[in-house]
Write a protein that binds this DNA or RNA. Structure first.
Lengths: 297, 297
DNA sequence: CGCTGTTACGCATCCCGTAAGGATA
DNA sequence: TATCCTTACGGGATGCGTAACAGCG
């Protein structure tokens, strides 16, 4: 099970085509075919159906491992190089939208204080991209949000250190003219029939809500893949569907927020960093966590 | 960064010798030398000092990643093979000592109920061994204990699914004639000057206590590497040192238990399992967790 | 000198690319 | 027939082992 075999296997599975994967990886179709054959022979089982190219159950299982393994290999390399290389002249800071908005200003203040004159780049991206980028050394620090049971960690495929920065309650965002908009609190089980907006990057991902409510009844007719929270809120205000958001978000007109009472969930923010940035990251995490404590009581 | 290069790197680092690692892996010394050279050239930095053979800082960092990567590769293979292979005719159940004693009987009852007539093997081993064995498919199920902040997960390098089974308070075990033995509760910070027994497999590991108390003052003059709890308690009764244990443990004469009030820590037990055993594991986890709830209030 | 790691060199293997073959729509 | 994956085959690179060499006690 060589690493590059896993890499091409992932590429083939993602592309759904040997030839497309070959083009993407710079191989010939023949080489890709041979590599997949080698992997299947090594494991003694078929991993892909052909025509169409779809993973077998065994292939699905391997896919679950392959991504994290390859990520960790990149993380290992990045980590070793960080030990050897000089400290970076600038800091690249990745954050998911719902993590960035409450924390970016404070993080910048702390970074300016601890490393005067240093150049900082903020990049807002999706959860997987931030986790991957921090592991691979492209970002020095990352802030990732998500929902979880109270005190549970986020389920990230992260390979550096993760530090909890903030836990805060959740709210359901709904149009102000929605019949439930004036409720004092709400139970997600009462909203199983509602229409949800599937906005995995700027709201609680629906799969997480399904897991938390232990049902797959939560359904959506509108998917929003962007990273701009205001756009999502405009959709909510226009009645296209509901979304679960952190309570601290300041909402524009037309959108009401009702605290989620059950199931017990929190919006959690975690700071990720590679090993070498550890001292700076520790104080940064402390500052952010302290701010989180104060703002959420 | 090929997987087998990592494997030989780990072996060399563990053996502290190229030739010993070569013997262990079935290579010649020359091959090992070439492999390490290839890895170092690939990463562009030295990983090992020679004579004596000791990891460089970069090598230390790589070592932190290499173990989990190799484990995960084994886990991936085991997982794929489980999908393909037939369901096992017998179940191998691994557990750490402090996880086994309260749960083994109940787990056996549940396994007998869910799979009548099935043959079950219980193996008591260290934390790393159980986590590794479950990932590699040698054990079908594993119970691992450890200490953690309340609701925090254990820090294991596990690659299957982990489910919390029990959280319970901690006690300090001390001889009945110890001056603090009649206290109603105790703060670990008051015991920094005490003498501790370093028994990582049958008591709270001292490094965890140091991390929790945020000091490295906790020191030990006696190490116990076995997996028999009673032997440790005999050492405690004889005044050789203190140990932190789960509160539910029934203590023999000569040993007193004082609840730990601060820092806030719990003794946590988690069930590990590979993917394929999921249905059985889920109900087993539920049964164990239910029992834990009842026994600890 | 004895031990251990490195370097040189030859050989087997592996792996990719080219090109031909076969299966499916 | 067109597309896509597989197979056959050749050449280059890789990687191991043998053996000679070099540093350290």
């Amino acid at each position: 099970m060589d690493a590059h075999l896993l890499r091409t296997f992932v590429a083939v599975a993602e592309c759904g085509s040997f030839s497309a994967a070959a083009a993407e990886l710079g191989y010939t179709q023949s080489a890709v075919s041979q590599q997949i054959a080698a992997l299947e022979s090594n494991l003694g089982t078929a991993l892909l159906h052909r025509r169409p190219v779809v993973p077998t159950p065994a292939g699905e299982r391997l896919l679950e491992h392959a991504g994290p393994i390859l990520l960790r290999l990149d993380a290992a390399r990045a980590d070793v190089l960080r030990v050897v290389g000089e400290p970076p002249g600038s800091i690249v800071f990745g954050a998911t939208p719902l993590a960035a908005s409450p924390h970016v200003a404070r993080a910048l203040t702390e970074l300016r204080r601890s490393r005067p004159g240093i150049e900082v780049t903020f990049a807002v991206a999706g959860r997987e991209e931030v986790a991957r980028g921090v592991a691979a050394g492209e970002y020095h620090l990352g802030l990732v949000d998500g929902i979880a049971a109270p005190s549970d960690p986020l389920k990230l495929t992260a390979h550096g250190t993760t530090t909890a920065v903030q836990n805060e309650p959740l709210v359901v965002a709904l149009p102000t003219d929605h019949p439930l908009a004036r409720r004092r609190r709400i139970n997600l089980h009462d909203l199983l029939d509602a229409r949800w907006i599937d906005a995995p990057e700027v709201a609680a991902p629906l799969p997480d809500l399904r897991a938390a409510t232990e049902t797959d009844a939560i359904r959506s007719t509108l998917t929003y893949t962007g990273t701009d929270v205001l756009s999502l809120l405009a959709l909510v205000a226009a009645g296209h569907g509901l979304a679960v958001l952190p309570a601290s978000l300041t909402l524009p007109g037309g959108v009401a927020a009702v605290p989620v009472e059950s199931p017990r969930l929190v919006h959690r923010t975690e700071l990720l960093h590679g090993h070498v940035d550890e001292p700076a990251a520790t104080t940064l995490a402390a500052v952010l966590a302290d701010a989180g404590e104060r703002s959420t009581g």
